[in-house]
Write a protein that binds this DNA or RNA. Sequence first.
DNA 1: ACTCCAATAT
DNA 2: AATATTGGAG
Length: 294
Amino acid sequence: MKESDDSNNNNNIRWSSKWEEDELPSPDELMPLSQSLITPDLALAFDISTNLTLQTPPLPPPPRPSVHHLSQPPLPPLIDPQPSDFADSSGELGSGGDEPARTLKRPRLVWTPQLHKRFVDAVAHLGIKNAVPKTIMQLMSVDGLTRENVASHLQKYRLYLKRVQGLSTGGCGANGGGAGAGDPVTDHLFASSPVPPHFLHPVRPSSDHYLPFVPVAALQQHHQMAAAHTRLQPPFQRPLAQFEHPFLSRAGQQPGYSVGALVHSQAQLYAEDLNMAHANGGRKVLTLFPSGDD
DNA sequence: ACTCCAATAT
DNA sequence: AATATTGGAG
């Protein structure tokens, strides 16, 4: 019952680099983007990364993506936190050969501006009607993203949209401002990505024609090499690229999931980095993000 | 089964 | 503060 956390700094790292072109690749080609969300296990294993003091520089350093590897996490400690806990009962019941990644709580997802952008893009491309959690999640195709993650974010996002909507035209000066919520124009995250017009006014009442915005074919399930990206198997087939951290040591032996920072080999544009920042209290959070500038 | 929303918990 | 979780309702 004591909370004396202070200095809760948000350490978000954002490198600059050209991430995606700006928009999502046409649904036809979308897929090669995969971010790795760390699995609980891995997270635990890492946990004290010791010195992740990567502060977010006001201005991202050099746009030069040049192999910026962060200090290699010593990652040896492997201090298994709770030995006795449920952890991994590989001998699950016969029923449901699920991935063990169940019943474990994953770390809180951190919505970086980049990730949020992807979210917005996905929603934009899906059209408001099809933009429901599940669909959005699939379109985003971010490894480790759950429907709930998206649902929660979506809920907040909608509230935000409503806010900015009521926040103009007439009501501005009047009591309209009292929408109720504090008006943190600093809705940091949300403000960080432009809100597509169609979001604000679902439909133009009369006169005035906007872009119909072609709804791309509904959802397409690409599997293809998706698998190669999302779940990589312990034995890597590739030599480690300069960007990768060979930290799967532990995960490698765990049955089931594994995560790794896989960089798209043909693209110098993508650089993923896992960043673990600890927020208040000692809770660990994962910051997954592609490099990008915002 | 899924979405939506508000309230609440962490 | 930002996310997650829960619960009722459609």
